[in-house]
C-alpha cells in the first residue's frame, strides 16, 4: 500500500446556516492521483481551501504525513510540503516567470529575513526555480513577464510555482479550466509525469481528463461524498450517473 500523505476525517465547513462541506473523509497516496468531481456548488473548492489552510474547518480533522494540521495557517501547511494551485490563475503578473518561481523557491529557505545579500545570488533557490520551470515545460519562457504569457502558459506557471516549493502533496484546483484541446493535452501529460513523484488531489470538470488520470475518484454533491472508489466503479455507479454524470452530458 502506498504511503498516505493526506487524510481527512469528517471535514466540515459551514457558512452561516449552509453546510458547504460536511463530513468529508478521504485520503491521498504517494504516486496516486485522487480526483474530486461534482457539480458546481458541490463544495470542491471549499474542500481544497480547508486542506491548504486558506479556510479553517468548522469541524473534522486534516492530517498531512500523519501529523494533525487542522487549523494551521496557510503558510504553515505550505511548509509541511503541501502545494496548491488556484482555480483562477493566481500568479504575480508583473513579475517574470522566473521571478514567480524564484520567489516560490525562496519560501523553502529557513527564513527570508536576510537584508544585505542580493536575492539573485541564492544559487540553490535559482536552481529550484529553473527546475520547476523546466518540469512544467516553461523553460523557454523564464524571462517573460507573467502577464505576457498565454492563458495556458499562466496555468503552467501556476503549477511551476507550486513545484518550486518542493511539495509532496499537490492540491490542484481545476488546472485545465479555460484551456484549449492542445493545452489540455500537454497539461494532462504533465500531470501524468508529476503523479509519479507526488500525491495529487485534483479537482476538475474535464471528465475525459479525470478518467484518464485518476487512480481514485470521489464524487461530491451538496457538500457530501456521494461515492468514492476506482474510476471504473464510479462510472458504473447508478447513483453517480443520475446525480452528476448524466447531468453533465445534457
Amino acid at each position: 500500500m502506498p504511503e498516505v500523505v493526506l487524510a481527512t476525517q469528517g471535514l466540515t465547513r459551514h457558512f452561516g446556516g449552509l453546510a458547504a462541506v460536511s463530513g468529508v473523509s478521504l485520503e491521498a497516496h504517494m504516486g496516486q492521483l485522487h480526483a474530486v468531481i461534482g457539480p458546481n456548488g458541490a463544495g470542491k473548492s471549499t474542500l481544497i481551501n480547508m486542506l491548504s489552510g486558506d479556510l479553517p474547518p468548522t469541524s473534522g480533522r486534516v492530517a498531512i504525513n500523519g501529523c494533525d494540521v487542522t487549523g494551521l495557517a496557510a503558510h504553515q501547511i505550505s511548509r509541511m510540503g503541501v502545494g496548491r494551485s488556484y482555480q483562477k490563475t493566481n500568479v504575480f503578473l508583473a513579475f517574470t516567470a522566473f521571478e514567480n518561481c524564484r520567489l516560490a523557491a525562496q519560501s523553502r529557505r529557513k527564513t527570508s529575513m536576510q537584508f544585505f545579500r542580493p536575492a539573485v545570488n541564492l544559487t540553490e533557490v535559482n536552481r529550484s526555480a529553473e527546475e520547476a520551470l523546466a518540469a512544467a515545460g516553461l523553460d523557454g519562457r523564464a524571462g517573460s513577464v507573467a502577464s505576457a504569457l498565454s492563458h495556458g502558459e499562466q496555468r503552467q506557471l501556476e503549477i511551476a510555482m507550486t513545484l518550486a516549493t518542493r511539495p509532496k502533496l499537490l492540491l490542484l484546483d481545476e488546472p485545465l479550466a479555460g484551456m484549449g484541446a492542445e493545452e489540455s493535452a500537454s497539461m494532462v501529460a504533465l500531470l501524468k509525469k508529476l503523479v509519479e513523484t507526488h500525491a495529487i488531489l485534483l479537482v476538475e470538470h474535464d471528465m475525459d481528463a479525470v478518467f484518464e488520470l485518476a487512480d481514485r475518484l470521489t464524487v461530491m454533491v451538496d457538500g457530501q461524498v456521494l461515492a468514492s472508489g476506482a474510476p471504473a466503479a464510479i462510472r458504473a455507479n447508478a447513483e453517480v450517473q443520475e446525480a452528476y454524470l448524466g447531468e453533465s452530458h445534457e
Binding site: D54, H75, S78, R79, V91, F92, L103, Q114, A119
Partner: peptide
C-alpha cells in the same frame, strides 16, 4: 534586492498568494 525585499514586493503584489507559498 535582498530576499527580504523580494518578499515585500511579493506581498504588495498578492499577499494571499505569498501566504500559500509558505511566507508568514
Amino acid at each position: 534586492a535582498s530576499p527580504f525585499g523580494r518578499v515585500l514586493v511579493g506581498i504588495k503584489a498578492n499577499e494571499a498568494r505569498m501566504r500559500s507559498l509558505g511566507f508568514p
